[in-house]
C-alpha cells in the first residue's frame, strides 16, 4: 500500500511539474517581440492576410484561451504546427529525438566506463601518488563544462590530430537508406560497419565532451563509497579468506558501493541531456538541441514549446526511472 501511495504521489508531483513547465514556456514565448506571422508572409501581403493567418494559428485569442486550446491538443497528441516549416511539431521533434538520444546514451556509456575505471584504479592504488593524481584530474574535469571540453576536443582531435569528424552526424555521401532515425542502433543491428564506424567517428567527440564532467563525478563518488565499503567487516572477512585485491574490490565492495552513485548519475544524466543543446550546436549535429536553437532564432513559437516540453518529459522520466531502479536495487527500501 505504501508503495502504491508513493507512486501515486510521485505521479502527481510529476504532473504538476510538467504543467508548470508548460505554463512558464507558454507565457515566456508569448512575450516575444516581433510578429512571427508577419515574418512568415511574403512581402506585399495585406493586413487581411496577416489577420487570417493569426487566426489560423490561434494567436488572436487571449492567453489563457490559447493555453487551453494548446493543452487540449497536446492531450490528443497534437502539439501544433511549426511556423517556419509548416509541419506538425510532433513529427519534427520525433524526427530529431533519436539523434539526441543516441548521443546522450553514448555519452552516458563513455562516462560510466571512464568513471568506473578511474574509481577502480583509485581504489586499487589508494593513498598513493596515483590516487592524488586522479583526484586532481577529477577536479579539473569537473570544473570545466561540456561546452569548453567540446571546443578543446575540436582543437585536439579535429584540427591538431584530425582523427575524428567535428561536424554533422554522418557523411552525407553515404547511402542513407535508414528505416528509423536511430542511425547508430539500426546500422549496428544490420551489421553495416561502414555506416556505424562513420556515425561513431562523428559522434565520438561530442559525446566525449558531454561525458567528461559526468565521468569525473562518477569517478569521485564511486571511489569515495568504495573506500568506505572497503573498511566494512564483511570485506575484511573476504580478504582473510584469501581472496585477492581485485576480487575483493569487484565482487565484494562494488555491488554495495554502487547505490549512491546510481542516484547521482540519474540527476547528472539530465544535466548531460540539457548539455546536448549547445554541444549539438558546436558540432553541427542534427539533433533536437540544434533544432531548438534554430526554432528560437526563427521565433517558431509552437516548435519551441514542443521541444521544451519534450525535454521536461525526458528529464522527469529519467528521474522516475532512477527512483524506481533505486527502490528495486535497495533491499532496505523494498521491504520498508
Amino acid at each position: 500500500m505504501r508503495l502504491i501511495r508513493q507512486i501515486l504521489l510521485r505521479m502527481l508531483t510529476t504532473a504538476v511539474t510538467l504543467i508548470g513547465v508548460a505554463v512558464i514556456v507558454f507565457v515566456v514565448i508569448r512575450v516575444v517581440p516581433g510578429n512571427p506571422i508577419a515574418m512568415m508572409l511574403p512581402p506585399g501581403a495585406t493586413d487581411e492576410d496577416v489577420l487570417r493567418l493569426t487566426a489560423l494559428y490561434g494567436l488572436d485569442k487571449s492567453l489563457p484561451q490559447q493555453f487551453l486550446i494548446w493543452a487540449g491538443g497536446v492531450l490528443h497528441g497534437d502539439f501544433g504546427t511549426s511556423i517556419t516549416s509548416r509541419q506538425p511539431v510532433l513529427a519534427l521533434v520525433l524526427d530529431r529525438l533519436p539523434a539526441t538520444l543516441e548521443l546522450s546514451i553514448m555519452a552516458l556509456v563513455i562516462a560510466v566506463l571512464i568513471g568506473g575505471v578511474v574509481a577502480l584504479t583509485g581504489t586499487r592504488s589508494r593513498d598513493s601518488g596515483i590516487e592524488a593524481a586522479i583526484d586532481i584530474g577529477n577536479g579539473i574535469a569537473l570544473s570545466i563544462p561540456d561546452f569548453l571540453w567540446g571546443l578543446i576536443l575540436i582543437l585536439l582531435f579535429g584540427v591538431l590530430l584530425p582523427v575524428f569528424n567535428i561536424s554533422g552526424r554522418i557523411t552525407p555521401s553515404l547511402p542513407l537508406n535508414f528505416v528509423t532515425n536511430f542511425y547508430l542502433f539500426e546500422s549496428i543491428l544490420r551489421g553495416r560497419p561502414d555506416l556505424w564506424l562513420d556515425l561513431i567517428s562523428h559522434m565520438f567527440l561530442p559525446s566525449l565532451a558531454l561525458a567528461i564532467p559526468l565521468s569525473a563525478i562518477i569517478g569521485q563518488v564511486l571511489k569515495q563509497s568504495l573506500k568506505e565499503t572497503m573498511h566494512l567487516d564483511y570485506v575484511t572477512l573476504s580478504r582473510t579468506k584469501g581472496y585477492g585485491e581485485n576480487h575483493v574490490i569487484l565482487r565484494e565492495a562494488l555491488p554495495n558501493a554502487i547505490l549512491p552513485t546510481l542516484t547521482l548519475v540519474g540527476v547528472q544524466f539530465t544535466f548531460l541531456i540539457g548539455g546536448t543543446v549547445i554541444i549539438e550546436r558546436l558540432f553541427s549535429y542534427e539533433g533536437l538541441g540544434n533544432l531548438a536553437i534554430d526554432a528560437v532564432i526563427n521565433r517558431d513559437l509552437p516548435l519551441i514549446q514542443g521541444i521544451v516540453i519534450l525535454f521536461a518529459v525526458i528529464f522527469t522520466a529519467v528521474n522516475l526511472v532512477v527512483d524506481l531502479l533505486y527502490a528495486v536495487l535497495n533491499p532496505r527500501l523494498r521491504h520498508g
Binding site: 512558464i24 528560437v296 528529464f315
Partner: peptide
C-alpha cells in the same frame, strides 16, 4: 518552483530568455 525549474534544459532556457 525548484522542481519545475529543474525540468528545464538550462542552456535552452537561457537562449529562449535572451531571444525574448
Amino acid at each position: 518552483l525548484i522542481d519545475i525549474w529543474m525540468a528545464f534544459p538550462p542552456v535552452l532556457f537561457s537562449i529562449l530568455l535572451i531571444a525574448v
